[in-house]
């Protein structure tokens, strides 16, 4: 007889309870996103449920928001979206750029140093985001730093390092020293061997790290909430300031764009690391 954690037949109350709780979990995870998606197609001005008629008017409104640039407002949706994207791309490039050589050294080096460094680079993950936001704010304010967009980039880099390093490390794990030795014995310099042999072999992990950094930075709210200024503000902050008093359906349509982008990117990451490593 086959025994499983989730019995496929029989199992009585056990199976029933397990399935019921799992369904609760799925509903709690997905209902908010589903409702936002449904309501974004509403034709009404308010957010009453169920929508009486369906339309795409809020989507055309979002597109109009992006195409008719309001030059007067410093915090327009266009400029905060651009800031968000620029920040996310720079964060992605920097974090991956610094993690690839580190992952190489950690994979080839001393085991004890490796576990110590891994611990150090996991810290930003468990450190409370509010405190991080406040700490960076205190530094920037009391030192009177005027560093423009970097006041958001620097904390974001720290935040994504754990995810990127983990992806790069798991990409390094399958690459033995022999492939490098082979390249060197054929006349390549050690650096050339890394550049031409090791890095192409790490490609999937590097890409997964890049995308992870992009998603996390683009969706980050808490630290940015403390660090944003009138000139440097991101899309989540713009959405917050717009909806702090009431919720209007065009923001929901904008949210659906973000949901779709996130889902596509997560599917990509999942495909890239398919089964080789866990997401965390």
């Amino acid at each position: 007889m086959r025994v499983d954690l989730l019995p496929t037949e029989g199992g009585g109350t056990y199976r029933f309870v397990i399935i019921l709780l799992a369904i609760c979990g799925i509903l709690i995870s997905s209902l908010p996103v589903i409702v936002v998606t449904i309501m974004s197609f509403s034709a009404a001005d308010n957010t009453g449920f169920p929508p009486e008629a369906l339309s795409l008017r809020w989507y055309s409104e979002v597109i109009a928001m992006f195409t008719t640039e309001d030059a007067n407002s410093a915090q327009s949706v266009v400029s905060s979206t651009i800031t968000s994207l620029v920040v996310a791309v720079i964060v992605m490039v920097i974090s991956t750029g610094v993690c690839i050589p580190l992952a190489y050294v950690l994979a080839r080096g001393d085991r004890r140093i490796r576990s110590g460094m891994e611990l150090l680079f996991t810290l930003p993950l468990v450190f409370p985001l509010v405190i991080l936001g406040i700490a960076f704010l205190l530094i920037a304010e009391s030192l009177r730093l005027d560093i423009g967009i970097w006041r958001i980039i620097i904390p974001h880099v720290a935040l994504v390092l754990p995810f990127v390093l983990r992806n790069c490390l798991s990409a390094m794990s399958g690459i033995s020293l022999e492939v490098e030795e082979a390249a060197v014995s054929l006349g390549a310099s050690p650096l050339r061997a890394i550049w031409d042999i090791v890095i192409p072999m790490m490609k999937a992990g590097i890409l997964a790290g890049l995308i992870f950094a992009l998603i996390i930075s683009f969706n980050e709210f808490t630290i940015t909430f403390f660090m944003y200024t009138v000139d440097v503000s991101t899309l989540p902050i713009w959405m917050y300031s717009r909806t702090v008093s009431s919720l209007d359906p065009s923001t929901l349509a904008l949210s659906v764009f973000i949901i779709v982008a996130d889902v596509v990117l997560i599917v990509l990451v999942d495909k890239l690391i398919a089964g080789r490593a866990s997401l965390f």
């Binding site: 799925i26 908010p32 996103v33 989540p236 909806t243 949901i259």
Partner: peptide, 24 residues
């Protein structure tokens, strides 16, 4: 699909999820 459904709340912009709860 299940992985994505579970993972999404951690990654997705928290504002979008708050909107969802407000609508619900």
């Amino acid at each position: 699909s299940l992985t994505i459904v579970i993972l999404l709340p951690l990654i997705l912009n928290l504002l979008v999820q708050a909107y969802g709860w407000i609508l619900l």
